[in-house]
Design a protein around this nucleic acid. Structure first.
Lengths: 162, 162
DNA sequence: TATTGTTATACTCTATAACTATA
DNA sequence: TATAGTTATAGAGTATAACAATA
């Protein structure tokens, strides 16, 4: 049988930080998705709740802008969260076109539970590293995020900037 | 106007490595997608070519298994690459059910060009870091990938393991 | 005239099952 | 009976345009 012509002068993807980051980043997202599933929400929904928790009463448009997605997409996200009893659409006091989105007590429980799950995941992913290595990694990653021009805590996966 | 009730005792997503990795990883993937676009391929296709470059003549099934996706999905990928003149489906010498997939000279140019683009992206993303910081980052990420059980160079985004 | 929220539509990806031809 | 490749279909996710109510 003709042996396959092996060639080893090939792009070494696995030694590049950009590839490793992409690999680990997707893995991290997939794990978090699986961890949140029993709570009935996705990382996207969790991100909206977390953002709301910092300032309730925002309009859908404000939330969409803050999270970098289109207001059309926010409709479905809020529909979902409302159907699960995690947010309420109240009338906006100043603008009768807009809703003021508020968290329910149930949402605060979900946020706390998700936070615990994120802690467990952090432990599982970084378990091999020493405290110093963890600190160095987080410091470096934080610098890279800042230099990329992202606002802290805003994940690009929510939408692709409109 | 009623001030929104700010709350700052909230999950600190942005200080967790898992969140930062997810952010940077997706960013890295999006940049690479944009960089490869002028070449007419996506990171997925590039990954198939890169894998093929290490060992030509593989069957679609072997490629699918190696890259962690279903053979059904490989059909479309190979269709695409074949239509663009990047791979050829030759008859397999030992198994008349299977194809032996081979790269074209054009594919080797695409691989080289993509490799250059990946270098440029690495430079753009890590530009702020010193040589020591880069080395430390890559070493740490490599350990994390290994501990996660991935094979080097196999990206989980290609498919979700079947 | 511009903006908030909504709906409808289309397009991409992915997942699944079922079919054929070979083994 | 199992395997390689194919096809068809359905579902999730996302992007775009157009609409009604209000500013």
């Amino acid at each position: 049988m003709p042996a396959p012509d092996d060639q080893h002068d090939v792009p070494a993807l696995e030694t590049r930080a950009s590839f490793l980051l992409s690999q680990l980043g997707l893995q991290s997202a997939q794990r978090f998705t699986a961890a949140l599933a029993p709570l009935g929400i996705t990382p996207n929904r969790f991100g909206v709740l977390a953002h709301l928790a910092r300032q309730e009463g925002r309009t859908q448009q404000e939330l969409a802008t803050a999270l970098g997605l289109h207001r059309n997409s926010m409709v479905g996200l809020i529909d979902d969260l409302e159907a699960r009893g995690l947010v309420e659409r109240r009338r906006h006091p100043d603008d009768r076109r807009a809703y003021a989105i508020h968290l329910t007590p149930s949402a605060r429980e979900v946020l706390a539970a998700g936070d615990r799950l994120a802690d467990e995941q952090e432990e599982a992913m970084l378990g091999e590293l020493s405290a110093e290595e963890r600190a160095a990694l987080i410091a470096t990653l934080t610098r890279l995020v800042a230099s990329a021009g992202y606002r802290a805590g805003v994940h690009p996966g929510l939408g692709s900037a409109h």
